[in-house]
């Protein structure tokens, strides 16, 4: 590829490209987490789900030759993890945060266990759509070659935002999250709604994992995700449980994650490891700035253990 020199403009452009590329897993995990949290339960295990989804997606794509089957497999395995979490949390006296930590370790362990043979081989990748044909600059073109999953994520975010407001199911989920007694009084099974919300949330997180291994960075390795699933949980709090805001927050996190590689692309390699910490620092500062002990957060589901 012949790079045209565009100097310092390369940094914001690379960050935009990175934001679009890096944000997709954040988007999917945070939408899944948003759904689960809206129903009044928190699933910290999505980190494990993300890693296992990345592994299973890559493995199935390699074995069948179809990346989309890989995405489906990742989603189904995510469902499976979500269902385990959802089922265990139904039992009395079980702490959803602790189960989340356990599922995080269990999911990562299983993914490393089954993923060993898939570290070397090259699996077919997801295709991308070029929206940068109008520009002559190769940087712009590469920045705007967008993965279809990103677009699916946007549609999903808008749909969830609409559905929470305007559909019967959205209302039931919000009611279970805000007041379990109210949902019980209306004759809905709180456990069942939360179980379904956690399972579907797991599906989204699994798909997010498949994006990691099948598009960007685009290979399965044991260091593929370091805390992205967990950052997505913090991101949902920052987005105030609003799926549309989740999308914006995911873009912001993606840009932060792209900062290190973007600076590297224009020759600033000093502090590469430091810029790698940017998303974590950003998450922490955003939480410091947006959370307050004095008032409860606007839009927070009333049953959520994390905000009590």
């Amino acid at each position: 590829m012949n790079e045209t020199d565009i100097g310092a403009y390369g940094v914001p452009l690379a960050m935009l490209a990175g934001a679009i590329r890096v944000s997709t897993p954040f988007l999917f995990v945070s939408l899944g987490e948003c759904l689960t949290e809206k129903s009044g339960r928190i699933n910290l295990g999505l980190e494990g789900t993300l890693v296992f989804g990345a592994m299973s997606g890559y493995a199935i794509s390699y074995l069948t030759g179809s990346p989309w089957l890989g995405v489906l497999a990742a989603g189904i395995s995510g469902c499976f993890f979500g269902a385990i979490h959802g089922y265990i949390c139904k039992l009395p006296k079980v702490n959803d945060i602790a189960i989340g930590i356990a599922m995080m370790l269990f999911g990562t362990g299983l993914a490393f266990f089954f993923g060993k043979p898939f570290i070397q081989p090259q699996a077919p990748h997801l295709p991308s759509i070029s929206l940068g044909f109008w520009s002559d600059l190769p940087q712009v073109q590469s920045a705007l070659s967008i993965n279809p999953l990103f677009l699916v994520g946007i549609v999903l975010a808008v749909f969830m935002w609409w559905a929470f407001k305007n559909t019967r199911w959205g209302l039931i989920i919000r009611m279970t999250g805000d007041s379990a007694p109210a949902a019980l009084a209306m004759g809905y099974s709180v456990d069942w709604v939360r179980f379904l919300a956690t399972t579907v949330g797991g599906f989204f997180a699994g798909v997010g994992g498949a994006f990691l291994s099948l598009y960007y960075p685009g290979a399965w390795s044991e260091g593929l995700s370091s805390g992205q699933g967990l950052m997505a949980v913090a991101l949902v709090i920052f987005a105030r449980w609003n799926p549309l805001a989740c999308f914006g927050a995911a873009l912001l996190f993606g840009a932060a994650g792209a900062l290190g590689p973007a600076l590297q692309s224009v020759g600033i390699t000093q502090g590469y490891y430091f810029f790698n910490a940017a998303p974590y620092l950003l998450t922490l500062f955003i939480m410091i700035a947006s959370v307050s002990p004095k008032r409860s957060l606007k839009g927070a589901p009333g049953e959520l253990s994390i905000t009590k």
């Binding site: 370091s226 949980v233 913090a234 430091f274 910490a277 974590y280 998450t283 939480m287 410091i288 307050s292």
Partner: peptide
């Protein structure tokens, strides 16, 4: 600041390693 300690502590682990 009322920040959930589970998430904060894990994030700070990643920062420490970085």
């Amino acid at each position: 600041r009322g920040i959930n300690e589970t998430i904060a502590s894990l994030l700070m682990s990643y920062i420490a390693i970085a």
